[in-house]
Write a protein that binds this DNA or RNA. Structure first.
Lengths: 141, 141
DNA sequence: AACAGAAATGAGAAGCTTACGCATTGGCGT
DNA sequence: ACGCCAATGCGTAAGCTTCTCATTTCTGTT
């Protein structure tokens, strides 16, 4: 059950946190903004404020349950942490996001950090390009 | 002369653009926020509005003269484009930024994009960690 | 060298995302 | 079941960036 997930993160099990976690799980193939999570809650007639959505997402992030990414466009997107690290490739036309992981790149990064005298804590690698989806340029927003 | 740089970018040569380019050049080892550029202009008694600074920086970016980076912290930073691509490693404690370039990583990125059917247009790679500067943790902000 | 048209600027205000304050509500251990 | 303390909701505020529009400044041309 989801409750365990939240409890293990050291957070009290509350309705907003349950619902938000649920929505993130159901959309685990996408990356959602706080606003999108909020709208999804409205659709389900949940009386949860936008402030709470931001608060909960930030808590999830701090607890390691979720990750926050800053793609181009100002709005941060969130995704549930499935344990396996990965980076992102984003279509600048339709917004599609795919994930990848490359052992070689990871190793190079570690090497570079060492060379510069940094103890690496995190990294952000995002490739931007145009995808080959035939109907790609049409999707708005 | 700088005028050529601006003219070649297809922009009218104006005093604000000259001054901002000048400041970026003098600080080419740093990465400046729009606000910092603005403050530097004030120090030099230039009557240039913050809105203009943002406008000009955006134009420089569009013209390929400068690059905008979104490090963690909300504020975007700008740096003059010196022709040679590079990525960044940022100290999460003191904010120090160093640059690096790794041919292996670049090649891997191209390979990954190809595999996913993306025509790569750009990328952003930022490593976050703690640097080994002895007086690092002291620097505020 | 002066002119006209178009583009750029400055100042303030608006927009957008995100965070905060405080009274109220709601989990959770006893 | 009870009460404490954390969590929530709402409104508000803060920070960064962009927009609006009247005014100023370039640029190519007389």
């Amino acid at each position: 059950m989801d409750q365990q997930t939240i409890r293990k993160a050291g957070l009290k099990v509350t309705l907003p946190r349950m619902k938000i976690l649920e929505i993130l799980e159901e959309n685990s193939q996408r990356h959602m903004t706080a606003e999108e999570v909020y709208k999804e809650l409205l659709l389900r007639d949940e009386e949860i404020g936008l402030a709470t959505v931001y608060r909960v997402l930030t808590q999830f992030e701090a607890a390691g349950l979720a990750e926050r990414h800053h793609f181009e466009g100002g709005q941060a997107v969130f995704e549930l942490n499935r344990g396996e690290h990965h980076d992102h490739i984003v279509c600048i036309t339709c917004g599609k996001v795919e994930e990848f992981m490359d052992e070689t790149i990871e190793k190079c990064q570690a090497k570079i950090a060492r060379r510069h005298g940094f103890r690496i804590a995190d990294h952000s690698l995002i490739l931007y390009g145009e995808c080959d989806n035939p109907e790609c340029p049409n999707r708005p927003k």
